[in-house]
């Protein structure tokens, strides 16, 4: 996550990658295992690279790769440092010049592995939000003065058209107040009210959402616009046995949580049948850590803010939510 701020914010890296390469970003968790032509291509490249054959301490193949369109590795590395990345890019370009461009045609499409639906579930006619998470200022701040103080993470939240429309009453009028339907509350609470500021973290399980309630009030009706206010509270708590550092020992009786209040300003355009504003905030204390969210030095309660806003409908913002999509769109809790 820090590589965005460190390696990929360097103007030399930005220029070189933009001008001399076709840059692509993908989640390698599915690519490492998916049984289709794209997965095979990724594995062909990765097994020539920096983590080739590695199984310990993990089988991850994450990193930065330069390759030819037919899968010949030019160079690879896994780094957050701009200088090291620049060295890798130079090496790749030298090998590219020596090899030349392959001419073998690449099929236009392939049969994708259905276990990884990804973009096929993108809700074109629904609601797509950007999600940002960041630590809020602390009264007493003991964090190291490095990227951990500035860390911000990103995600996307997806809602189907039916879920989006469930946020509106049939005939809205000022002063109306009603509960947000459970599928939307569940989606937000389980999959997006998370401490992923410093790195990815598992979604909350159903029973780890200890309390969640959200209400919407119709603030004003100015046809075709309906202005809404959202408020609510959520308490998520998990207890169990886990590690708070990658590849370290797991400890029993661990606890992590997030107890937050939500507030938001929404505007729905009835003519366009879509939201034109969806600004929501979650603010509260988080505590504990997980294996990959880099909180091992910061386990005590501290304030965390999560902001939601409308995403643009461009390829770079059609990124699937971090969660397992089968669980993400799962059935609502019956109770």
């Amino acid at each position: 996550m820090a590589s965005r701020e460190l390696a990929f914010s360097d103007p030399r890296v930005i220029r070189l990658i933009s001008e001399r390469f076709i840059p692509v970003a993908e989640n390698c968790s599915p690519l490492q295992v998916q049984q289709d032509a794209k997965g095979e291509f990724f594995r062909k490249v990765a097994e020539q690279g920096h983590y080739a054959g590695r199984t310990v301490p993990s089988a991850t193949r994450q990193g930065q790769y330069a390759c030819t369109p037919d899968g010949t590795l030019l160079a690879s590395i896994n780094t957050r440092e701009a200088e090291k990345l620049l060295g890798m890019l130079d090496q790749a370009l030298q090998r590219w010049q020596a090899l030349g461009s392959p001419t073998e045609p690449i099929p236009e499409s392939y049969a994708p592995d259905p276990r990884f639906p990804g973009l096929s579930l993108y809700p074109h006619d629904g609601l797509v939000l950007r999600v940002y998470s960041r630590d809020l200022p602390r009264a007493v701040d003991t964090r190291p003065a490095d990227w951990r103080v500035r860390a911000v993470n990103y995600d996307f939240a997806w809602f189907t058209r039916d879920e989006m429309l469930s946020l509106l009453p049939p005939r809205p009028h000022e002063g109306q107040r009603y509960a947000v339907p459970w599928p939307v509350v569940r989606r937000l609470a389980r999959f997006h009210l998370l401490d992923n500021v410093r790195g990815e973290t598992p979604a909350w399980k159903e029973d780890e959402v200890r309390a969640a309630a959200m209400m919407i009030e119709v603030v004003a009706v100015e046809p075709p616009l309906v202005h809404l206010r959202l408020d609510g509270t959520v308490l998520n708590v998990a207890r169990g046995t886990w590690a708070v550092r990658p590849f370290y020992e797991k400890y029993p009786d661990m606890e992590r949580g997030y107890h937050c209040r939500l507030y938001g300003c929404l505007t729905f355009d009835q003519a366009q049948q879509r939201f034109v504003r969806f600004d929501v905030l979650a603010v509260g204390d988080r505590w504990g850590g997980t294996e990959h969210n880099v909180r091992w030095d910061d386990l005590d309660p501290a304030p965390l803010g999560i902001a939601f806003e409308l995403a643009g409908d461009v390829p770079q913002e059609r990124i699937p939510p971090h969660a397992n999509l089968w669980d993400y769109f799962g059935p609502p809790r019956v109770s």
Binding site: F8, I17, R20, F21, I22, P23, V24, A25, E26, N27, C28, S29, L31, F42, V45, A46, T60, R61, Q62, G63, Q64, Y65, A66, C67, T68, P69, L74, L89, A92, L93, W96, S101, E200, I319, P320, H322
Partner: peptide, 11 residues
Amino acid sequence: KPIFLWAMNGH
């Protein structure tokens, strides 16, 4: 042109 791939566990 060559491909530059940024691959992470998580997008």
